[in-house]
Amino acid sequence: MSAPPTGVAARLVSAAEAFMAGPEPSYPGFVLLAARHGAVVAHEARGWAVCHGGGEPVPMARDTVFDIASLSKLFTATVAVRLAERGALALDAPVWRGVTARALLTHTGGLPAVIDLGPYPDRAARLAAIDALPLTTPGRRVYSDLGFIVLGEVLQRVAGKPLDALVAELVTGPLGMADTRYGPVDPGRVAATEDQPWTGRGMLRGQVHDENAYHLGGVAGHAGLFSTARDLAVFGQAVLDEDWAGAMRREGLGWQRNEPAWMGALASPTALGHTGFTGTSLVADPATGVLLVLLTNRVHPTRARGTDSAYRRAVAGELAAAIGTQGA
C-alpha cells in the first residue's frame, strides 16, 4: 500500500473526503489529480466506485474510469478547432440554419438548453426535432446541449467521419489517451452512475448516463465520453500548451471561463474549465500553470445528491491556498 499523502495532496484529500460524510453524502467516492507547470502534486482516490445496487462494493482507484458527461463538449470543441486549423472548417461561416460554428461553440447559436429526445422513434427523427426548433435572439448566450449535438453533426458532415473517429484521430490518439472513449465501455474499471428503474436501464455502469446521448446511440457532441483523471490531466495540460491548441486557449472556445461558482478560488480571468453533470470537473489556468481534475460519481445512486458545487469549490480553494495562487 502506498503511504498516506502529505502536504498539498493531504489538504486536497481532506477537503474532498468531507463531502463523503453524513447521512446524505455528496458522492460515494472521488479521484483527484492536481498539477502545476506540468508537475503532479496530487493524484489520489478515495471511497467507492460502486456501492449501491447489490453485490460487493468496488473501491475507487486512481485509474477508475468515469462517465465525464459534459466534459465531452471540450473534445467536440477541440475537434472543431483542429479542423479549422486544417482549413476544413470556417468557424465564422454559417454551418447550420445560418448559425456559425463559433456561435455553437460559445452557446450563442439560439438553441434552447435541452429537449427530451426520447419520445422520437429514431436518430433521424431526433435530429429533425432539434432542427425544427425555433431559434432565440442571435448572440444571446444560452448554455445548450442541443447546440453541441448540432456541432457534432456538423463536424461529421464536414470531415466525412463519425464523431468518435474524429475525437480519436485528432485528440485522444495524438495525446496517448488510451482510457478515453465513447461508451459503452467494459464496466470492470468504471464508476457507476445512476440507478434508473424508470428507464428500464437499472444501475448504469459503462453505459452513458445522459439520456439524450443514450438516445443518439452513445456518441454525441455534448456527452458520451468516458475517461480517467490521468487522461484528462494530459488533455488539460495539452490545452495549456499554446502550440497544441492556441486558438482554443486564447478564445475559450467550448470552455467556461472565470466561473467562481464552481472554480472557487481558482477562478480568474485566465482560468478555463468545465463541469459534468455526473460530478466531474476540469480547470486549467495558463497564467498560473495550475491544473485540477476532480472526478466524482455524485449521481450514484441518485442525481439528487451533490447538486451544489460546494465540493468543487472546497478542493479548488485548498489547492489555491496551498500553492499560493489564491487571488492571482
Score class of each variant (00 low, 15 high):
residue 86 R to F: 13
residue 15 A to S: 08
residue 327 G to R: 14
residue 142 V to S: 09
residue 184 P to M: 05
residue 152 G to C: 10
residue 276 G to P: 09
residue 113 A to R: 14
residue 45 A to E: 10
residue 57 P to H: 10
residue 254 G to D: 01
residue 101 A to Y: 00
residue 261 A to G: 14
residue 77 A to W: 02
residue 160 G to S: 11
residue 103 A to H: 05
residue 269 P to I: 07
residue 281 S to W: 08
residue 175 L to A: 00
residue 211 E to D: 15
residue 56 E to Y: 09
residue 193 T to K: 06
residue 161 K to Q: 15
residue 169 E to S: 12
residue 327 G to C: 14
residue 191 A to K: 05
residue 182 Y to W: 09
residue 62 R to L: 12
residue 111 L to K: 02
residue 109 G to F: 04
residue 58 V to R: 11
residue 246 G to P: 01
residue 313 R to L: 07
residue 139 G to S: 14
residue 99 V to N: 05
residue 316 A to K: 00
residue 306 G to D: 01
residue 157 R to Q: 15
residue 180 T to H: 04
residue 8 V to H: 03
residue 73 K to G: 07
residue 270 T to F: 10
residue 106 T to C: 01
residue 286 P to L: 04
residue 105 L to G: 04
residue 300 H to I: 03
residue 5 P to F: 04
residue 203 M to W: 12
residue 9 A to G: 14
residue 149 I to F: 09
residue 30 F to C: 13
residue 35 A to I: 08
residue 171 V to L: 01
residue 178 A to W: 00
residue 4 P to I: 02
residue 251 E to F: 00
residue 302 T to Q: 14
residue 321 A to P: 08
residue 106 T to G: 00
residue 208 V to G: 03
residue 146 L to D: 05
residue 103 A to I: 02
residue 2 S to C: 11
residue 200 G to P: 09
residue 118 G to M: 13
residue 267 A to G: 05
residue 57 P to S: 11
residue 148 F to A: 08
residue 325 T to R: 07
residue 75 F to N: 01
residue 132 A to L: 09
residue 219 V to D: 02
residue 80 A to W: 00
residue 154 V to L: 10
residue 258 N to R: 13
residue 56 E to H: 12
residue 137 T to A: 15
residue 304 A to I: 09
residue 160 G to H: 11
residue 82 R to Q: 12
residue 7 G to F: 02
residue 261 A to Q: 13
residue 114 V to H: 15
residue 181 R to Y: 10
residue 284 A to N: 13
residue 223 A to L: 13
residue 25 P to Q: 12
residue 106 T to A: 02
residue 220 A to K: 05
residue 48 W to E: 09
residue 267 A to R: 01
residue 279 G to V: 10
residue 136 T to Y: 12
residue 125 A to C: 12
residue 60 M to C: 15
residue 14 S to K: 14
residue 133 L to H: 09
residue 99 V to H: 07
residue 227 S to E: 00
residue 172 T to S: 01
residue 88 A to T: 11
residue 253 L to C: 03
residue 283 V to T: 14
residue 328 A to R: 14
residue 103 A to V: 06
residue 154 V to G: 06
residue 129 A to M: 11
residue 310 A to H: 15
residue 166 L to V: 08
residue 111 L to M: 04
residue 250 R to T: 13
residue 202 G to F: 04
residue 100 T to M: 07
residue 66 F to E: 04
residue 233 A to E: 02
residue 14 S to I: 09
residue 147 G to P: 04
residue 252 G to D: 05
residue 233 A to H: 11
residue 166 L to R: 04
